[in-house]
Design a binder for these strands. Structure first.
Length: 747
DNA sequence: ATCAGCAGCC
């Protein structure tokens, strides 16, 4: 739509020729500048930047622009008004021969909170070059320090501080407050706190900045402690204080303290505002009290899209999808963020199917334009489900709509293709990224891809290439790398990387890395070494560590360590049915039936059920799911016929059911073989054999680890039917071909 | 004139 023109020609003619700017008086009000000069007055009535540009034209014509004072007002108008156009302000600025300090600061400030904070510094540098004209003042520093915070440039911030000190501005409270924010952004909370302590006369912003720093820097306890202290020193908290205190409660998931902060807001008579209410909603939903959230929400005089989205996410994450949806439907207009909230809630709570359904709905309804966040969540959902066709379609969609291949998006694509079993496609995406644009996450995602496909050597090669490209590995990279060594049984390499990660690369091993090592050592039969490693851990071992140990015990049949590991595991995670199942598997292997029965009783007593196995296969864009003994599929009859045919053929080449893992599930002898035959992955493979063309591999996804018998059967099918089978289980891929598996039976 | 603050992402 064209902007309405301003009646420039109707201005009295004398404004075009003579002017006396010195007589114009200026007042400031909320960032809008008033002058008694009619042209400047007009600048304030502009409702879009085109009109403002017309004012510029007018000022050029009447000569007003050559007055630095008036020009600076125009620069400010472009820099700050709701019609902000910083680049235009910059262009104007460049045309002012000798801008005053006020104008310099205006531009530096505008850039410091723009998309390109580095520009702020470039202007600042120019300012220093022209030190004969103008010098930075106490207003300049807070802005440039803010830019340094945005850039997370530690050195720069300290240089700026040094300059401020040289100018005797070292105790300016505004500058020091900015510095607290700066150090906090750079994750140097201790330095921030030191600055805070040394401010001689703290104001409320000093307190707020420090509380915010702690709250956002994952030190919520200290934030709340400071909140108390502040009141002890009779500082009156304001609404920003309250927002940060709420952030701290949210981080801690501490509902009690959250409620207490809420009561403080009322006690101090802090005026209710939309932002504050939104922060309260966020706290209540994240701390798990949807009742409190709903109560507040119902009473809020004003709601915006953030309020609604918070409620939608709150309900969706709590598993109450019906209420989530109800809120979503009631909100006045669903922007893409709201859609994303719904999609990612589903995706992250393990409901990828629902996530895709919502994405589909978004597509059909055409109510909002998907953005890159939508793509990331949707790809994640595809990855979880192993929905390759859908994932490929999203990839095409991304290309077609010209999405920027951000680091997030690239990793999501690599992850999706890897988890859907197409390592080549994953590599294609990886290779398509410019060498110098491959961030550490992109490299790590590719290492993970190799890891899950059992290509340990390739993972290590890639890691070396990454080093050659001067990309510094992080904690994620090492988790993936160690995982790769573990899956491929590269024990000595794994040990080596584990040693080097801290010494050479400066990455301190975390629980995840220990879990990988325990898995790797245990799997390879070094149970004692694994135990030793656990005992030497500097942090308490998490469930994943004992889980890995337990898995190894099952593989190598060690009852004593298994009992120890599982009791620790159950201590940590009483609801972990995997621990019970694994232990009872081990007991069964040694014929300790009374112990099996005891375990089963205990599971029953505390209401734990074995997670049932489920396998899925995607045929022509549709996902088909099977559970054990399933006959709900429309083609069920044909599937079972095929299954019978398979077993007849396999028996001819010497197949015999391996029952070691079902003994504890089904006691009646003759039932065992039957149940084995009906494992979900076998049903899915049989269905794949019926439905797919000869050249297409069968891709099956399973939620649990594949059992030994199914593994064996899949190998044989791949030979007898000359068919490739890709089976993804809970931990990795098995690639069956010509009677062998890519895991080389090491899993 | 300045500094601090709310939803969605591997």
């Amino acid at each position: 739509m064209a902007a309405p023109s301003l009646p420039i020609t109707s201005l009295p003619p004398h404004h075009r020729v003579s002017l006396s700017p010195a007589t114009s008086s200026i007042t400031v009000n909320n960032g809008r500048y008033f002058s008694n000069h009619p042209t400047i007055l007009l600048a304030n009535q502009c409702s879009n930047s085109k009109q403002l540009k017309q004012i510029h034209a007018q000022m050029l014509r009447n000569g007003l622009f050559s007055d630095p004072f008036s020009a600076s007002i125009l620069v400010s108008a472009f820099a700050f008004s709701p019609l902000q156009d910083v680049d235009y302000a910059h262009k104007l600025f460049d045309q002012i021969p000798k801008p005053n300090i006020y104008t310099w600061n205006a531009l530096i400030r505008a850039y410091s909170s723009s998309q390109v904070p580095i520009q702020s510094l470039s202007i600042f540098t120019q300012m220093l070059y022209r030190s004969d004209e103008v010098l930075p003042n106490k207003f300049t520093y807070p802005f440039v320090i803010k830019a340094a915070s945005e850039l997370l440039d530690m050195r720069l911030g300290e240089v700026l501080l040094g300059m401020a000190i040289k100018m005797s501005l070292g105790s300016d409270v505004f500058i020091l407050n900015s510095l607290i924010h700066f150090y906090s952004s750079c994750k140097c909370l201790n330095s921030a706190y030191r600055v805070f302590l040394n401010i001689p006369t703290k104001d409320v912003v000093s307190w707020n900045s420090m509380i915010t720093g702690f709250a956002q820097g994952d030190r919520p306890d200290e934030a709340l402690k400071l909140f108390h202290e502040m009141q002890g020193e009779s500082f009156r908290p304001d609404k920003v204080t309250m927002m940060s205190a709420l952030t701290a409660c949210t981080k801690k998931l501490d509902l009690t303290t959250g409620r207490w902060v809420h009561s403080n807001i009322k006690r101090y008579g802090i005026k209710e505002s939309l932002n504050l209410n939104n922060a309260l909603l966020d706290m209540y939903t994240k701390c798990g009290s949807l009742e409190d959230a709903q109560n507040l929400f119902d009473k809020m005089p004003e709601k915006d899209i953030v309020s609604w989205t918070t409620m939608v996410v709150g309900y969706a994450k709590s598993g109450d999808y019906i209420t989530a949806r109800k809120h979503f439907n009631t909100m006045p207009n669903q922007d893409i963020a709201a859609w994303n909230a719904l999609i990612s809630s589903y995706e992250q709570s393990g409901n990828p199917k629902q996530a895709l359904a919502i994405f589909n709905e978004l597509q059909v309804s055409n109510k909002a334009k998907p953005d890159s966040v939508t793509m990331v969540s949707t790809l994640s959902a595809c990855a979880q489900m192993g929905a390759m066709d859908m994932g490929g379609w999203i990839h095409v969609y991304i290309k077609k709509h010209g999405f920027n291949l951000t680091c997030h998006l690239t990793t999501s694509l690599i992850d999706m293709y890897s988890k859907c079993g197409d390592l080549n496609k994953a590599l294609e995406v990886f290779n398509s990224v410019d060498r110098d644009k491959r961030g550490v996450f992109v490299w790590s995602a590719m290492v993970a891809g190799f890891a899950m496909h059992g290509c340990g050597r390739d993972a290590i090669e890639l890691f070396k290439k990454m080093e050659e490209n001067n990309v510094k590995p992080n904690s994620v990279t090492f988790t993936n790398l160690l995982c790769a060594c573990s899956h491929s049984g590269l024990v000595s390499e794994g040990r080596d990387f584990f040693k080097k990660m801290e010494n050479v690369y400066g990455v301190v091993p975390g629980v995840k890395h220990y879990a990988c090592m325990v898995d790797m050592l245990g799997r390879a039969g070094h149970l004692d070494e694994a135990m030793e490693l656990i005992n030497s851990m500097p942090m308490p071992p998490l469930a994943s560590v004992y889980g890995a140990l337990l898995g190894a015990c099952k593989l190598h049949g060690n009852v004593e360590i298994a009992e120890e590991a599982s009791s620790r595991l159950i201590e940590l995670e009483p609801w972990n049915h995997g621990a019970y199942v694994l232990l009872s598997n081990i007991y069964a292997k040694f014929g300790k039936w009374e112990k099996v029965a005891m375990l089963r009783k205990r599971m029953k007593d505390i209401g734990l059920k074995k997670e049932h196995g489920c396998s899925s296969i995607e045929i022509d864009n549709r996902l088909h799911e099977f559970i054990v003994g399933d006959n709900s599929h429309p083609q069920s009859e044909i599937i079972y016929e095929k299954l019978n045919e398979i077993f007849e053929k396999l028996k001819l080449i010497g197949y015999e059911a391996n029952r070691s893992q079902v003994l504890q599930c089904v006691e009646e002898e003759d039932m065992q073989e039957h149940a084995l035959h009906l494992h979900s992955e076998k049903l899915a493979i049989a269905f794949g054999l019926i439905s797919l063309k000869n050249s297409q591999p069968i891709r099956v996804m399973k939620n649990l680890r594949v059992c030994k018998d199914c593994h064996n059967v899949a190998k044989m099918i791949s030979k007898v039917y000359d068919k490739e089978i890709l089976l993804r289980d809970r931990y990795r891929f098995h690639h069956f071909k010509d009677g062998d598996c890519s895991c080389k039976d090491y899993w």
